[in-house]
Computed example of a mutant assay.
Amino acid sequence: MTGTLTFDSLTVPLQALRLLAADFPHLPAPDIDLTRIYPDRLTLCFHDGLHVFEAWREALSVPPDAVTYTVQGGGTTGVLKASTVYAGAEVHLRGFGDMATDGGAA
Rank of each mutant, 00 (worst) to 15 (best):
R36E: 02
R36Q: 01
R36M: 04
I37E: 08
Y38H: 12
Y38F: 03
Y38E: 15
P39V: 10
D40W: 01
D40N: 05
D40K: 04
R41V: 00
R41A: 03
R41K: 04
T43S: 07
L44R: 10
L44T: 02
L44S: 04
C45A: 14
C45M: 08
C45T: 04
H47C: 08
H47K: 10
D48I: 02
D48V: 04
G49W: 01
G49R: 08
G49L: 13
L50V: 07
L50D: 10
L50Y: 06
H51D: 15
H51F: 13
V52G: 05
V52M: 07
V52C: 11
F53H: 14
E54I: 05
E54D: 15
A55I: 00
A55Y: 00
W56E: 06
R57E: 05
E58G: 13
A59S: 12
A59P: 06
L60E: 13
L60P: 14
S61Q: 12
S61I: 03
S61K: 14
S61V: 10
V62Y: 04
V62T: 05
V62P: 04
P63Q: 11
P63V: 01
P63N: 09
P63R: 09
P64C: 07
P64A: 13
P64I: 11
D65C: 03
A66S: 09
A66K: 06
V67Q: 10
V67E: 07
T68I: 08
Y69R: 10
Y69V: 05
Y69T: 05
T70F: 01
T70P: 00
V71M: 08
Q72P: 03
Q72G: 15
Q72R: 10
G74N: 14
T76S: 12
T76N: 11
T77W: 05
T77F: 14
T77C: 13
T77V: 15
G78M: 00
G78R: 01
G78K: 02
G78A: 06
V79Y: 10
V79C: 08
V79A: 01
V79L: 12
L80K: 02
L80C: 02
K81F: 00
K81I: 01
A82C: 06
S83D: 08
S83G: 15
S83N: 11
T84V: 04
A87Y: 06
A87M: 14
G88W: 14
G88C: 13
E90L: 07
E90G: 09
V91T: 03
H92S: 14
L93C: 13
L93W: 01
L93I: 07
R94S: 07
G95Q: 09
G95V: 02
F96Q: 12
F96C: 12
G97D: 04
D98G: 05
M99I: 00
A100I: 08
A100K: 05
T101E: 10
T101L: 14
D102Q: 10
D102H: 06
